[in-house]
Each structure stands twice: as structure tokens, then as C-alpha cells.
């Protein structure tokens, strides 16, 4: 059974063992407006927590996507390149950005769960 985490940068991670699927939260997708472009990380790349590795753009904004934990990129959601609107339509499902391995599970401890994130975005 996978477990869902959130970062303060409005990314979600669905963790299953030592791998995670990463995307941006439904809340963030709403704030960005219509997503028009997604730049995905290179598969195979080793990343450090906090490193900017992808970009999501709406018409009037560009936002960096940071690696939520350290690890290696194992897959990128190429479907987003042709259908960026998926991020708006299903941010926490078909709109995932990439999958990665987690090299240090301890890094997960600083992240929020569903309830904490709901509180975080309340204002």
C-alpha cells in the first residue's frame, strides 16, 4: 500500500517501498492556472533533495519543480508533453511528473501528510 506525502513546495509523493511517484498538488494546479508546458527530468538522472529538476508553466508563470527527496529518476510522464492540461484535470493521478527511487528514507520524515497539507494550504 502506498503512502502519500506533501512538500511545502506543493508537490506530492506517493511512496511505495523505496520508490516514489511525484507530481504537483491539486491545490497548486488550481493556483497556477492553465498549465501549458511541462519540462520533465532526464530518466536515469541522480538528484539531490531540493534540486530544481523540472518546470511547469502556465501562460503567465513558470515554476520550478524540486526533487522532494534524493534519489534517481526512473520514469518521466512523457504524455504531459503533448497534453499538459492533464496536470489541471488530474493533478494527483494521470498528471504525475516523474517516478524516482528514494536513496534516504529519512528524508521523508520532514514531509507533510494529507491532513497537515490541508492545514498548510488553508489560508
Amino acid at each position: 500500500m502506498s503512502k502519500l506525502y506533501y512538500t511545502e513546495d506543493h508537490e506530492w509523493l506517493s511512496v511505495d517501498g523505496d520508490t516514489a511517484t511525484v507530481g504537483i498538488s491539486t491545490y497548486a494546479a488550481g493556483q497556477l492556472g492553465d498549465v501549458v508546458f511541462v519540462e520533465l527530468p532526464e530518466v536515469g538522472k541522480t538528484v539531490k533533495k531540493g534540486e530544481d529538476i523540472a518546470v511547469v508553466e502556465s501562460v503567465k508563470s513558470a515554476s520550478e519543480i524540486y526533487a522532494p527527496v534524493s534519489g534517481q529518476i526512473t520514469a518521466a510522464n512523457a504524455a504531459l508533453e503533448d497534453a499538459p492540461e492533464t496536470v489541471n484535470e488530474d493533478a494527483q493521478g494521470a498528471g504525475w511528473f516523474f517516478k524516482m527511487t528514494i536513496s534516504d528514507a529519512a528524508e521523508l520524515s520532514g514531509l507533510m501528510d494529507e491532513a497537515a497539507y490541508a492545514e498548510f494550504t488553508k489560508e
Binding site: 502556465s58 501562460v59 503567465k60 508563470s61 513558470a62
Partner: peptide, 12 residues
């Protein structure tokens, strides 16, 4: 495609 430009992307 303005996200390439300075008024949105600034130093990048």
C-alpha cells in the same frame, strides 16, 4: 510562449 522571456522568467 512568454515564459521564455525576462518579464516572467527573470534570471532564467
Amino acid at each position: 510562449l512568454s515564459t521564455r522571456e525576462q518579464h516572467i522568467r527573470r534570471e532564467k
